[in-house]
Design a protein around this nucleic acid. Structure first.
Lengths: 145, 145
DNA sequence: CTTCCTGCAAATCGTTTGCATCAGT
DNA sequence: ACTGATGCAAACGATTTGCAGGAAG
């Protein structure tokens, strides 16, 4: 639901940045719009093959990088699972609650930066990262698979 | 200052875990005890070569991995700089303020988890990460090198 | 029709492994 | 002495690049 809107948003953004809208990129947009967790390049490649046979790995990489640089996708490096990508929420700031087992990700609005008053040193703050890791309901229920 | 204590602490910890205390591991402990930012495997290798010529890259990796598994070092993957290691503070919980230019790292005590009341889903929380990125005083002063 | 995108194959980078030798206990 | 640690070289996986043909504007 609402996915087609997001796909269109992504494609428009690509076009505005001067990128051509190819079948492959449409498929890519589709995949990320309809999946709200993180996907590894391999995951993406596998999904691509289903909808659009004959893709090559390097093109998947190229497009993932392009989409990340454009801010459409957000990268994250899982210590165990390596680099993964996820559709970026472009509208508002939030943080993530991530299941360390299945990687299901929820967002929440609380931001610690609001509360933070004094910091050591005289850093000019440019960014921050706040993530909470846990085990989601379903993973707690289903035993160690 | 206080470095020798930390080195000794690390070495004792290795010994208690059944690892032999080799020259190389002593040097490794020394390097991390006297540097409080993150170091990449390459950084460590370069430092090692200075104090202990003839090291090989794979042994550096092996020891870094070993030290991480033992909890003496803490790993972190920088999106730009790849995997890096840092001496783990074993005594108390804190978070980091990291310079995105020189990677100089300060610690601070504020922890957002104390204030956090309600979260979505029914995750069993096991861990969290909170880091603030900025530009430190010296890097603000010295222009874009 | 021009330029960008794609697939292929090969190169590259960071990291890991097998093995014979060497050093710590 | 015994066993684990090291250096070497080679394997490995993930990601990137150069190039020729094909498709989007």
């Amino acid at each position: 639901m609402g996915e087609s809107g997001t796909v269109h948003e992504m494609l428009t953004m690509m076009a505005n940045n001067g990128w051509r809208i190819t079948d492959q990129r449409k498929t890519l947009a589709h995949i990320f719009a309809s999946h709200d967790g993180y996907l590894s390049p391999k995951d993406v490649y596998d999904q691509m093959c289903v909808h659009y046979p004959g893709v090559s790995f390097d093109t998947v990489y190229r497009n993932l990088r392009m989409l990340s640089e454009m801010g459409i996708l957000e990268q994250f490096y899982f210590m165990e699972g390596g680099l993964k990508f996820k559709a970026n929420c472009l509208s508002h700031h939030h943080h993530h609650l991530i299941c360390i087992q299945c990687e299901k990700t929820l967002t929440f609005e609380y931001c610690p930066m609001d509360k933070l008053s004094e910091l050591p040193g005289d850093y000019k703050i440019v960014n921050h990262r706040f993530e909470i890791y846990g085990i989601c309901g379903s993973c707690q229920a289903g035993a160690t698979t």
